[in-house]
Structure formats: structure tokens, C-alpha cells
Design a binder for these strands. Structure first.
Lengths: 338, 338
DNA sequence: TTGAAAGCGGTACCAT
DNA sequence: ATGGTACCGCTTTCAA
């Protein structure tokens, strides 16, 4: 880790001042073409690349953005959202010369603390806010700290905070329509933690679609997005009388956990109970029965979020962008009630 | 993002020089207790926290470490290793005041390029090397660049490069012993890409155990660690004559893909063919049949890797640490041959 | 068009 | 025990 060649070396070698070198290599006007060429050549010959540190200090920019994942360690391992989201973010950051600082926090409180620290250190120029809750204190926090932020799958409207969202309603409507079409009338829901905005949104979509179709929403039990909580939900729901004939789970993990438990209890899926998930994770296609679900595109969401954030760092005002809505994928875990 | 209070403000307010403030707040000797207390108090009152940027420049340290994940975007989403590994890394870095810079690259070439850029920018003080291949040019690269590095699940021995490893042999031996014990004699293997060291290691462990047990190793087909490649392997292996009665897959994803395809082709698992995986991902417990596998501990590996790297940054020489070996978990996907 | 010099916010050496 | 000051590597006025 030995930094040798600096702007001073280049300047000396090219016989100009460091100011000229700086201007030349940042394509700023005021440098004659011959001089610029000469400088670029020597810089290249000397193998010089500008020090991010020096630049950071003088420009008061970190050239990186932050993401704090708030997730229980036991859930995070199987949650495929972040891998896709991050690779999307990364693909855009790379081209912009920015880097992603990733942190993991187990609780909401610790999450806040990490954002606060990121800000205090000036380690990042902007942040992503995922797993938005209601209310979410991070909004006020970043606003107060004056840090550009992009919220994912949150409602637009926070002033100064951008958002990127993939609509869930059309696909959830299509899913419920599919179930009703098959003849289901007792359709239960396994929700995520209710203070998460996306959990809340999915539940609301479920409830409203059914109300609109003049069907009384079935039971709703709260899970935590984990496989295990899906299993617990199955145990709870399948002992109810009358038993639901179909269940919409707020994510695929819970749906798979649900199916595993249902099968274990002697119920057949979809014979005795149809099960659908949300997310469209790869495993869904390999589960038995394969999972009817709603496919989402975390990678695209990540790309858009990164683009939006970089734009804000360049001075663009907060904005809201909608990506292509999620869509229904019908597989083998849903069928007519018997 | 307005940085206001600097060390100068604190110095002025406390009526001392900035040198004294710096010394006081870094617990360096040469500051009288009363002065130190006064300084700490004013710093706190003014809400001062040292600028990472200023410190970075003068200390020539980035206070962050890097990890470039090299993975095909389609595989990364379902691969649970990194989530666990990263959360382990992060938990240690947090306490050390370090941050993790995470990058994602689709190919080996791009991976190298990203490491090179991280070094050129001096964006990180050290790096993790995962998914080590044979040969792996990154070893020479980081050595040449003089960047402290920790390789994960690689063989010890690279001078100047530490390694952290969770032994696979005992568990793979136990797994094969389990299969042989059940009566299996035709035991096939679905490997990962053979140029990956861990893929190679697992295959070797399989081959050597069987040789040692005087059993001829069965067929070995190469996969890419994805669900889909597990399915392809099933199609290929199950049409062989004589058919293998058991299959050891180099990771759980392929094992699950294998089972899905086998079932689809009309084979029963473990009736017609026993299937075992490697990794111990959560899904294994929820698959039908539940998956016999080898559990690993990515989180622990991450913690150890981070500790080792931080130690190197503090001047410790390269070292090698072994974590608790992986261990066998017998579930329902393996049984006696029929 | 080019250069000198003042920051940016710290650390650390050397006097005092 | 303190303070003065020269860096660290770059950007950015302002003069020449």
C-alpha cells in the first residue's frame, strides 16, 4: 500500500504546475491542447491516478454511498432481495466512480445509529433507505442531516427524499383474481411485520381486492418474513374452522415455510389449500409443488435507486420513479378448492 | 451535509492548540488530565467528531476494507453464503471503526479490475478474497500492490496473505460414511466449477474418501452451483446405467435443483436415489424431502476473516485460522438404496 | 495559458 | 505539558 506518484511528480515531470495538471486531467478549460496532451501522457507514463483521499478532503465528497441493511441475521441469509438489489446498485455506481458502503444492523435502533455514524464521519454522500417502516425515523434523520436519500418501495412525498418503487397492486390483484377465479372464497393472508410499509401495502392490497370483489377477507396472521414464521402461520391457519382454502403469503419464504408445514400436517397443496407467495425467488420454481407467486425485480430497483441517488448528488431535486410493476406467475401451488 | 465544527473550533473554544486537542482526543500522552477533560467536554458540547477525510489523508488510511463478490447475477440472488459472511464481517468491522466497501462483478476479469481500482484509489486498506480459484491471479495482484488480504477457504501459504478456513473434510467424510453405511456403493458427485478451490476440494474429498473405502468413485458431473445446473446434472446422471444410488452435490442449491428434477422424472428421493448437499442453507430444512447436508458457518467465517484483516492492518503478520469444522446434518433426502 | 498559494481537517514532530 | 508548523494530495481562486 505504498502511494508513490502524486500530482506533484506529474507536474515536475511534465514541467508544469500542479494546478495545470489538475485542470488538464479534469478536462477543465484553460489548458492548451499541447500542454494537456503532454500532461496526460506523463501521467499515464508515471502510472498516476488521483488520490481519492486528497480529492475527498478538498471537494468535501466521499465518493461513496451507504446502505444499512436492517435484518435479523437468521433471516438475512435466505432473503434474496438484497443480493439482487445490491448488484443492481453496484452496476450503476461502478460507472459513476462511486462505491457502496454496506452495513448490517440487527435492530431498528442500531440501524439508526449506523446511519448517524455514517453521517458524522462523512463517510458517504448519500444513502439508500430500504425496509421502510411507518413511521420511519430515518426520514427525519437524513433530512435533518441534509443527506441525499432514496427510499425503496416507500410512498413518494418525503420532501427532499427520492423514492423508487415497483408497484405491487396490479400483480396482487391479478393473483387474487386468479384465486377467486379458481373458486376460492376463503382466502387468508400471512403478512409481514405490520409496521413495514411493504408488509402493510401487501396486506392492504389483499384486503381491498377482496372487499371490492364482495368477498369477506379471511384470516390474517402476522409473520416476520422468515421460513419459520410461514410454518407457524400454517399451523395457526390450518386449524381454523372454517379452514381457508387459499392463502396469500407476503413473501415466498413464508409461502415455502407454509407449504412445508401444511404438507407435514397431512394437507395437500394445492388440493386442500392453495398457497401463493410474493417476490419470485428462484427457489419457488424448484419447490414442490412449484410456487405461484408475484415476481419482482430487485436488480432493476437497485439500478434505478442508484441512478436516482447519483443524480441527487449532482444536484438534481428529489424525484420519484416507478419501475415496471411486479407480475403474476402461476405455478403448481394454486388450484381449485375441493 | 454541512460540516461545521472542526478541530480548530474545538481548540479555540477550549483555549488550546489543535495539536493538544488531537493528542487529547486520541488518548495520547502529554496532556494533563484537567486539560484533557476540558477538551473532551468542549468537543462534546460542540458536537465535534473527527473528520474521517482529514484523518484519512494525514494517516494514509482509508478506514475501510473491500470485498468484491464475483458471481453471476442470476446465481447471486439465491446464494446465501454472502449474506451470512458479510453480516459476520460487518459485526466485527463496526467495533473497529471500519467500513465495508462492497462490489459485485460478473466475471473474473472484471473482478480483478475492481480490485485494481480499489487499490489505485486507495479506497480500502485491505481486502477479502472469496471464491478463490486455482490459480488465482488476485494473490499476486494484492501482493504486488502491497495490500493486506485475507483469503477465505483457501489453502494457507500465500506469503503475506492470511487465510481463514472452515474444514470440509471431516463433514464430507462423515456424509460419505453415512451413505456407505446405508449400503450405497454407486455414489456420484455434482461438482462446482472445477477451477474454484472449494469445488475442487469437495470433489477431492469425495474421491479420496471413496478410494480409501475401496469403493470406485461414481460419475462426476460439473455444475455451476446454481439450482438450474443441479437439475441438469440430475437429467444427466439419472439416465446413466448403472444408475448411481446416491449423489453428493457440492452445494445445497444444486442438491435442491437435483431433487426437483429427479422427482419430475419420476424418481423418488431417497427411494430411488439419495441426495445430499453442502452448505446447510435454511431452505434445506424446508425442502421436501428435507435435505441431508453439511452445515457451514458463513457468519463465523466472516467474523474471523474480519478480525484477521483488522489485525493485519495493525501490523500483525499474515496468519491462518481454522474455524470449527463443518458438520453433517442427516435429514430425509438420504436413505438406504432399494 | 499558466503558476503561486490558500485551503480541506486532521496528525505528528520539534520546540518551548 | 503545550504550541507552532510542516505535511498528506488534491481543488480552486487569483495574479501574472
Amino acid at each position: 500500500m505504498k502511494q508513490r506518484v502524486t500530482i506533484v511528480d506529474v507536474a515536475r515531470d511534465a514541467g508544469v504546475s500542479i494546478a495545470t495538471v489538475s485542470a488538464a486531467l479534469n478536462d477543465r478549460p484553460g489548458v492548451s491542447e499541447p500542454t494537456r496532451k503532454r500532461i496526460v501522457a506523463t501521467a499515464k507514463r508515471l502510472g498516476w491516478s488521483p488520490s481519492l483521499r486528497g480529492r475527498s478532503l478538498s471537494q468535501k465528497r466521499a465518493f461513496s454511498v451507504g446502505l444499512v441493511i436492517q435484518r435479523n441475521p437468521s433471516v438475512i441469509a435466505s432473503d434474496p432481495f438484497f443480493a439482487g438489489f445490491i448488484s443492481g446498485v453496484e452496476s450503476v455506481l461502478e460507472d459513476g466512480g462511486y462505491a457502496l458502503v454496506l452495513q448490517v444492523a440487527p435492530t431498528r435502533q442500531r440501524t439508526i445509529a449506523r446511519y448517524r455514524q455514517l453521517a458524522a464521519d462523512h463517510r458517504v454522500d448519500g444513502v439508500f433507505l430500504t425496509d421502510v417502516s411507518i413511521p420511519d425515523t430515518r426520514f427525519d434523520l437524513v433530512r435533518r442531516l441534509g443527506i441525499p436519500a432514496v427510499a425503496i418501495n416507500a410512498r413518494p412525498g418525503g420532501d427532499g427524499i427520492s423514492s423508487v418503487r415497483q408497484a405491487h397492486e396490479p400483480a396482487i390483484d391479478a393473483l387474487l383474481h386468479h384465486l377467486v377465479d379458481l373458486g376460492h372464497r376463503r382466502i387468508a393472508h400471512v403478512s409481514g411485520p405490520k409496521d413495514y410499509i411493504h408488509a402493510h401495502d401487501r396486506e392492504t392490497a389483499w384486503r381491498e381486492y377482496l372487499s371490492g370483489a364482495r368477498i369477506r377477507p379471511g384470516a390474517c396472521v402476522e409473520g416476520d418474513f422468515s421460513l419459520a414464521s410461514g410454518s407457524r402461520a400454517a399451523a395457526a391457519l390450518l386449524r381454523r374452522r372454517p379452514r381457508p382454502t387459499a392463502v396469500f403469503c407476503a413473501n415466498d419464504l413464508m409461502a415455502i415455510g407454509f407449504i412445508a408445514k401444511a404438507t407435514e400436517l397431512g394437507f395437500s397443496v394445492p388440493g386442500d389449500v392453495s398457497v401463493a407467495g410474493y417476490d419470485g425467488i428462484d427457489f419457488g420454481a424448484y419447490a414442490r409443488p412449484s410456487l405461484t407467486t408475484v415476481t419482482t425485480a430487485p436488480h432493476v430497483l437497485g439500478e434505478q435507486a442508484a441512478r436516482t441517488l447519483l443524480a441527487m448528488l449532482d444536484g438534481a431535486p428529489a424525484s420519484h420513479v416507478d419501475t415496471e410493476p411486479a407480475s403474476l406467475v402461476v405455478r403448481a401451488s394454486t388450484g381449485p378448492p375441493t
